[in-house]
Design a protein around this nucleic acid. Sequence first.
RNA 1: GUGGGUGUAGCUCAGUUGGUUAGAGCGCCGGAUUGUGGAUCCGGAGGUCGCGGGUUCGAAACCCGUCAUCCACCCCA
Length: 421
Amino acid sequence: MMIKGIKGVKDLLPEESPRWRFIEDKARHWATTFGFQEIRVPIFEVTTLFARSIGASTDIVEKEMYTFQDRDGTSLTLRPEGTAGTVRAYIEHNRAADPLPQKYFYFGPMFRHERPQAGRLRQFHQFGVESFGMADPRADVETIALLWQLLSDLTLPALTLEINNLGYTSDREAYRPTLVAYLRPLMEKLCVNCQRRIDTNPLRVLDCKVPDCKATTEAAPKLAESMSDKARTYFDAVLKGLDTLGILYHLNHRLVRGLDYYCLTTFEVTTTNLGAQNAVGAGGRYDGLVETLGGSPTPAVGFAVGIERISMMLPESQTPPPAGATTVYVAAFGDQGAPVGLTVLHDLRRAGVRAVVDFRSNTLKAHLRQADRLKCRYTLMIGDDEVTKGLALLRNMDTKGQSDIPLSAVVASIKPLILPS
RNA sequence: GUGGGUGUAGCUCAGUUGGUUAGAGCGCCGGAUUGUGGAUCCGGAGGUCGCGGGUUCGAAACCCGUCAUCCACCCCA
């Protein structure tokens, strides 16, 4: 029986990895130019870290985590998202003591036990950023601007930025009873999930996509109406900042987000090109989380994007070109040619020239076929005749022009052709 | 967790009301070209028909089960 990969866990094959590399490079580039620094945290943590940060009543914690016991019985969990671990590291290493702005970005696999479908996997990859310590609307603007800059630079199609104000915890606590009072009498019109949510997380009812739920919550009292002046002012400043930078957005008062730790600004970038899973990236402010996890009160804001989803949307024109133009194929054959070719191959590589060969090919014809398939611009042919003459034959695969090169000068002759000075 | 679609060659897929040795295109290897790629022609290799039962003289096809995969619900990146 063949051993196969785990359901919802995919291999990234060489044909596709350049696309990922391209996305990663762009993400790293923009994150660093926005002043964020890379952090690498473990992909598994103590289970309580996620339970405490994401929220015990969320789907992620209730039924989607990969949790297992360590040998001493400690409950560990494969990270379902990146913020919790980053916050844990921030606290554990007392980064608050560093006077520099603590702005991090990360990249890596996340794990959620969900039913796979288009754009949804059990192991998926995120690029995310977290900006600690600044309770300033400009920090929100900066974070959203980075997200938007990255996605725009990748020329992803049909993007929409949706944004909402969740207010402070106290605002939501004040709003909650009025919302519950409104929903309770209408309970029968809501889906089963939402009936449960009235007690566990009533705000989530507003974000339900079931048409009946949407209809019944249409006339519900809005969070914005019971928002404190402080929260209102803050959010206005965020919007004003986005206006200033020319970043377009849609206000969406239903946008609640699935994770419990968000407050004030929440946002989500969606597209129409991804099937049912239409979120490319999302984030928000989470001022209470650091304290919840045992740190001192620290405001923070961040986002994460799904690499698979970006890759699905990445236009073909954005895929980096193959490296054939700067690759030499060394076609060495025959009893004397083959060993000489091995040396030449190594010399070229040591000189920084990308050089390849297919050792399975024994004839010149087979070598040239491989050189063609690899789209190499140059093929260096070395047979027994060339060896006795102390030469190699360099063929330009595009022009079919050929010229003799002394074996002793192969590297010197080829290097300027391949590597731009 | 629920629902639907699909499983036949490396890939994309045909395969008639059940009938003998399971096909095509592309790809791959070789030859035409004794040392020159792509195009053309010729030849060749490659298959537990997802798996396990059942019905039948006979199953890739029909029935049951199972697994995988895709899509959707849900949820989210």
